[in-house]
Design a protein around this nucleic acid. Structure first.
Length: 423
RNA sequence: GGAGAAAUGGCAGAGUGGUCGAAUGCGGCAGUCUUGAAAACUGUUGAGGGUCACACCUCCGGGGGUUCGAAUCCCUCUUUCUCCGCCA
């Protein structure tokens, strides 16, 4: 969430920038400032009351010690009144603070200067493209047909066991999946990201920390009995490792990578756009997460973008990079680059990675701080990106690498797979 | 799942109703000494709110209660440890 101080200092700039998200932020920001004023005012009054009450209590203590019980009794009546007052003030403070918090949760992050205005994905800005779209054989099929033909992914079996959107990977399909996970993790480790394994279920506080809660709870599977959420992305557990931490400046940059399955309820639509691997309730993803010094976060973002480019280059997949417009930008993000692979057989682009800088927005929720050179606590910046999401990469490989009599395996993956062709 | 014990500052660990935001040790930082380092000695060292700066307020796992006053007493939740049971 946004910091009050920043809202006070840059209100007009924020209003302008939030217009790119098609939000009229003026009333929200004004209300936040008004609530904060009220909060401060109430706090000051409460502090004074408590201070008086504290000093009286000390006096009473002294009087009892020196045997002046009667005088103490007189003072006791006074503190009784103060107690009432402070109770009222403290209740007011709690409710004002809650109201302020709720309001702040509703205000999205401020888009970066470079973020284009716009409403839909049509308005996203292509900033880079690379790789040749292959000429496919005339009998080329979309990946869900290929999956069936070579018996490597079984969607119906998944329906039987669980439901739609939970595929079963078989044989070389399963092996290719595992190969991709290993390959991505290795590439990330090579680039300096420390591999970690994290829980796949998180508590409510973690959901709030990274911004899935309170508004997007419908997106996550909730285990009611234990009040836990299945993670929609590794971002949630990994970033929450740092919740409430005050780190040392020399610990920057913090770079983690984690493989996890991801679970998304998303009441999805039906049809060709979500067929096969295009949209799933459970899928695998390798994520990269960074915690950075505020002065370095955009440099880090660029680094992450280059890193993902390298992987796609090695896989020899045709892809493009988009800078998301204000309307498509995630609630907590300042700047996001989406990576899309071209699926030749489907003749469309598939999103396979999203790399974002959240600046201090998540940190403020997480209370993730560091000590700067003056010994002051400051919020760190957090970033994350997929490196990479499995299903659509898999779809891209299956479709773009298909030949007359099978599917070839990208060269870099052969050592991981132990075979060079699916047939 | 059953029985018991515990949760205090970066760590260890005192503190069982009143100047306790908290002894002491270790660690960290600064200084003295030293060519330099180590050792020794001296000082300093939690977070948040608030203030120009002070003052002041809050926080001893979370929440609630008793009391003029709570780290300390009561209730509750969570977590950890020990023993038993079960188990990949």
């Amino acid at each position: 969430m946004l910091q009050l101080q920043a809202i006070r200092e840059s209100k007009n700039e924020f209003i302008t920038a939030l217009k790119k998200r098609n939000i009229d932020a003026a009333p929200l920001l004004d209300k936040a400032i008004a609530l904060d004023d009220k909060r401060r005012e109430t706090q000051t009054k409460l502090d004074k009351t408590l201070a008086e009450s504290n000093s009286l209590s000390k006096e009473i203590g002294m009087l009892f010690k020196t045997g002046k019980a009667q005088e103490a009794t007189v003072l006791k009546e006074k503190t009784g009144v103060l107690k009432e007052e402070s109770k009222v003030l403290s209740d007011t403070l709690t409710s004002v603070a809650e109201e302020l918090q709720t309001l702040l949760y509703q205000i999205p992050n401020i888009p970066h200067d470079s973020v284009p205005a716009g409403n839909t994905e049509e308005d996203n800005e292509e900033v880079f493209a690379e790789g040749d779209v292959p000429e496919l054989v005339s009998s080329a099929l979309p990946h869900w047909e290929l999956a069936k033909k070579y018996d490597i992914i079984d969607f119906e079996l998944g329906v039987k066991v669980t439901g739609a959107g939970f595929p079963v990977y078989k044989g070389k399909g399963a092996r290719l999946q595992r190969a991709l996970i290993s390959y991505f993790l290795d590439k990330n480790a090579e680039a300096g990201y420390t591999e970690i394994q994290v829980p796949h279920l998180v508590n409510e506080a973690s959901g709030y920390g990274t911004g899935q809660l309170p508004d997007k709870e419908g997106q996550m599977y909730h285990v009611g009995e234990d009040d836990l959420y299945l993670i929609p992305t590794a971002e949630v557990p990994v970033t929450n490792l740092f919740r409430g931490e005050i780190i040392k400046e020399e610990q920057f940059p913090i770079c983690y990578t984690a493989y996890t399955p991801c679970f998304r309820r998303e009441a999805g639509s039906y049809g060709a756009h979500v067929r096969g691997l295009n949209r799933l309730h459970q899928f695998d993803k390798v994520e990269i997460v960074r915690v950075e010094h505020p002065s370095k976060s955009f440099e880090a973002l660029d680094g992450m973008v280059e890193h993902v480019k390298n992987i796609l280059r090695e896989l020899k997949l045709p892809y493009r990079v988009l800078r998301l417009c204000g309307g498509d930008l995630g609630f907590t993000s300042v700047l996001t680059y989406d990576f899309e692979v071209f699926s030749t057989a489907q003749d469309r682009w598939l999103e396979i990675s999203s790399v974002s800088n959240f600046e201090a927005y998540q940190s403020n929720r997480l209370k993730l701080r560091f000590k700067d050179e003056n010994g002051k606590s400051q919020f760190a910046h957090t970033l994350n990106g997929s490196s990479l999401a499995l299903p659509r990469v898999l779809a891209g490989i299956l479709e773009n690498y298909q030949v007359e009599d099978g599917i070839e395996i990208p060269e870099v993956l052969i050592p991981y797979c132990g075979f060079s062709k699916i047939d």
